[in-house]
């Protein structure tokens, strides 16, 4: 990233936009760059940018670099950053916002994580419940076919211990649920 992002209005407003999308009290703009989040993060070693750095990039309007960063996808939602942040910024919520923006704009480079989320969501939308076996097989076949052999003993283990259901369960009110989700999607788009 040798070139600075163009200093356009759209880029300048990036932080404001992310804060707004996250919720009225995300407090993202109040970041003092202390690094508590980056220090706390259990998966920081696998992140392209620490959360703090990501917020600095947001402030600088580096739209592309932020939305293509793997940082939000490596976030494990452990909330260490959230309880320690001296400015009480809702960092996990900001990460969720960045994920949804990256998905909406197709900005991410590695689709493993976002595909997993999308597969999960489609299960929920179809059945109302998550379905571990279906989720795992669909996901692993697509993204980690080579890992499957080493995973097999575990899968078989879980199956033999009756810890995986072979068939998904569907809730009765699936139509009601979808009506609610459809309306929610309209509201989200508005």
């Amino acid at each position: 990233m040798s070139h600075l992002a163009p200093q356009t209005e759209k880029n300048f407003k990036l932080m404001e936009q992310v804060a707004q999308k996250t919720g009225s009290d995300s407090k993202l703009e109040t970041c003092i760059q202390c690094g508590t989040c980056g220090g706390s993060c259990p998966s920081a070693m696998d992140m392209e940018h620490t959360p703090r750095k990501l917020f600095a990039l947001l402030r600088a309007g580096e739209r592309e670099e932020v939305l293509s960063s793997n940082t939000p996808w490596v976030c494990v939602s452990c909330y260490f950053c959230a309880v320690r942040c001296p400015q009480e910024i809702k960092i996990p919520d900001v990460m969720y916002t960045l994920k949804s923006m990256a998905v909406a704009e197709g900005a991410y480079r590695d689709s493993t994580a976002s595909d997993f989320s999308r597969t999960f969501v489609s299960m929920v939308e179809n059945y109302g419940r998550s379905y571990e076996l279906g989720l795992a097989t669909r996901h692993y076949l697509r993204h980690f076919p080579l890992r499957l052999p080493s995973m097999a003993p575990m899968g078989i283990g879980l199956l033999s211990k009756k810890r995986l259901n072979l068939k998904p369960k569907k809730i009765q009110g699936i139509k009601q649920l979808n009506a609610i989700l459809d309306r929610a999607k309209e509201l989200e788009a508005a």
Partner: peptide
């Protein structure tokens, strides 16, 4: 996080 190098 050593914020000057951006690493934990």
């Amino acid at each position: 996080e050593d914020t000057l190098i951006g690493k934990q």
